[in-house]
Simulated scan of single mutants.
Amino acid sequence: MSGRVALHYFNGRGKMESIRWLLTVAEVEFDEYFLTTREQYLKLLDDGALMFQQVPLVEIDGLKLIQTKAILHYIAEKYNFFGNDIKERAMINMYSEGLMDLMEMMMVLPFVEDPKPKLDNIQTKAKDRYLPVFEKALTGPVYLVGGKLSLADVLLLEATLMLEEKFPAILADFPSVKSFQGRMRQIPAVSRFLQPGSKRKPQPDEHYKETVLKVFNITAPFL
């Protein structure tokens, strides 16, 4: 294996996509090793690579990191996307945790027998609970915390793009968030990541769902 960052996950978004986004914005090259069989997953277990028997797994700096938040925090600390002091870090964490809650609601949709009620709930919560927070925070400032790009900004971009895939007009009542998204799109690394052929993953399809269920030996539907 090369000395580059190595990502072990499915060939799809899931919890690894935020990690791909953050590495991309940090302009860190990474290799991907896709789980396609249960045997691959069991080998990672046998090798002791998965502390809690879970992926994502990221190999970086000689470490084998699991748990999405821990991985994101490590990368954010390493590449200076985690604020200037403990107070800024607390704000970044609060924004980030809210965004991850929102995105996790969308991540489960492929595994739900009837997604419509969940979609309605996501749209309502996005408009009533989440987006107003970021609209207020971005009325004036360019970035969410400390006047500089942080983990929270990267997650907000990812989340708004995911929302627009499901609800194309959802940002119509949130002009500051929409302007923020436009500014983020102009970052060269972001612009490249949004182009066809990048390592950004498409919306999950039936093949992605079947692969996840097969690797984890789960019978669908389970939600």
Rank of each mutant, 00 (worst) to 15 (best):
F193S: 00
I71L: 14
E113I: 04
S18L: 01
D173V: 09
S191T: 10
H207F: 05
L171N: 08
L42D: 04
V142H: 07
K125E: 14
I218E: 01
Y143I: 02
E17H: 00
P196V: 01
M162D: 08
T124P: 04
A220L: 10
H8P: 00
D61Q: 08
L213R: 05
Y9T: 00
G12V: 00
L223V: 08
M103L: 08
G48H: 04
P110C: 05
R129N: 05
K209W: 01
F81S: 12
V5M: 02
V58S: 08
P117I: 14
L119F: 08
R89V: 11
K64F: 05
Q123H: 14
M103S: 10
V108Y: 08
F193G: 01
K69H: 15
K64T: 06
A90W: 03
E206T: 11
D101L: 12
I75N: 06
M105I: 07
T124W: 04
R13Y: 06
E27P: 00
Y74M: 13
A6W: 03
I187A: 08
N80R: 15
F174S: 10
E17M: 07
V190M: 09
D128P: 03
F216D: 06
F216W: 08
K43Q: 12
V112C: 09
L44N: 03
A172D: 15
F134A: 05
I75P: 01
S18M: 02
G146D: 09
E88C: 11
E158V: 02
M100F: 09
L35Y: 06
A90Y: 09
L156M: 08
K118Q: 03
A49W: 12
V112F: 07
L102A: 12
N11P: 04
V212I: 07
E104Q: 13
L171E: 08
K148V: 11
G182Q: 12
K127V: 12
K178L: 15
H207M: 07
Q54E: 09
L213I: 04
E17A: 11
R183E: 15
M51V: 15
T24R: 04
I122D: 01
E164C: 10
E113R: 10
L45V: 11
F134H: 07
A26Q: 12
N84H: 14
F167T: 08
S176I: 03
E164W: 01
W21T: 06
E113S: 13
D31C: 05
T139M: 06
